[in-house]
Design a protein around this nucleic acid. Structure first.
Lengths: 212, 212
DNA sequence: GAAGAGGTTAGGGTAAACCCTAGGTTTTGG
DNA sequence: CCAAAACCTAGGGTTTACCCTAACCTCTTC
């Protein structure tokens, strides 16, 4: 009995690549490929594969939230996350949300098949690379933690304006508060992100996906 | 006579995907796959394919510069850029540097083959999506130009230090120059990127891939 | 209903960033 | 081989960002 696999990925190139790679293996059968999460959800209601390869960065949906949703709705469905992001925060979030494996997009064919096989048999599987990322993170370089800080309403507003190159004075005018107030929010932002100045703030906020 | 194709891409998954997709077509023969640019350069000296699929975001090299280098060294080699970046600046830079086509990673198999065929016959080929990006850019939103500015040695150094949260004074110490000199480089950076302050500088530099 | 926690609002003072100008050095091109 | 251009260097003066402290407000929580 072959392992049935479904694939959800925005990038048709990767989708087709994954599908062709897997179709060469007898023990695995690709039963569905989707480039839109809506189509995937629809298909899963009718016929459920054993394993789902799930991309994190979808166009119209959040892969991390989708993962939680799917693993709640279909506890039997084993999810393998596929992503470009090698940051520990993403990996942790996906594993917390029910993914059984986390593969980077530079994974080899052999590793991909191993992951599907392990996951199908109920085990968790992480490649060396990914395990090392988690290890380094927990043993830890004494570096700033990469978890995304929780921002207040005002802080989000100020951050957005900073990223649009407004000065504290200009932001103060827009928000109808004193310059000193804006400076306080700004200081809190630096503290929450664990950085020293605007350069670090923008860099961290961009990496966290809070601004673009 | 089949079209011989070489592929250079860090991501083994995409590499294998591309190769498998192309191997199903009789008129195309994949003669080389490389995950490191060094291996690619070495191989090209001995045996040259008709077409090279070239990823932009390589680990240890700059795809844009590599493209210019290759199309100078081997004028007969037709280069197809493959990238995740859908920003007009990247597209323009690759085309300026000798690429004959620019494909996004969500390209379909049919489009990939079409691109290789066209490029091999000497034509340029851009998918609708990519053409539209260039059109919209030139017709234009009256937005800031997104072309990547050319930086001097000192400017690159200073930019790097700024992104690492060093102050002008600290950078001055590291480079053995006056604070005022560093400030000058910094002002020139702002001017070259067309931004008003550090926030805009970091944002632009990250979007341009100059820092991470 | 008082104590505590988190959020928004500011002030005073210092350090850093930014603008304008300009001389000396290296690189480029005819 | 000389002129032009580009680059590195740096000073004076102004604006902005950052640090420390703290009042007030709202919303829990016991």
């Amino acid at each position: 009995m072959a392992i049935s696999v479904g694939i959800l990925d925005d990038h048709e190139m990767i989708l087709e690549g994954l599908a062709t790679m897997l179709s060469q293996t007898e023990e695995i059968e690709v039963t569905g490929c989707w480039t839109h999460h809506a189509n995937c959800l629809e298909a899963l209601e009718k016929q459920r594969p054993n394993v789902l390869l799930l991309d994190i960065n979808l166009k119209n949906a959040n892969g991390i939230e989708l993962c939680a949703e799917l693993s709640n709705t279909y506890p039997d469905l084993q999810i393998v996350a596929v992503s470009n992001y090698n940051e520990s925060s993403f990996i942790k979030n996906m594993l917390r949300n029910g993914a059984k494996s986390y593969l980077l997009k530079n994974t080899s064919k052999e590793e991909l098949i191993t992951a599907i096989r392990k996951v199908h048999s109920g085990e968790r599987y992480l490649p060396r690379t990914v395990e090392n990322i988690l290890l380094e993170d927990s043993l830890g370089t004494p570096k700033p933690k990469t978890s995304i800080p929780k921002l207040t309403r005002r802080e989000k507003e100020v951050l957005q304006f900073i990223s649009e190159e407004y000065t504290n004075g200009e932001i103060a005018d827009k928000l109808f508060v004193s310059i000193k107030t804006v400076e306080s929010h700004r200081t809190n932002l630096l503290s929450k992100f664990g950085v020293k100045n605007t350069a670090g703030l923008i860099k961290s906020a961009m990496n966290a996906g809070l601004i673009s």
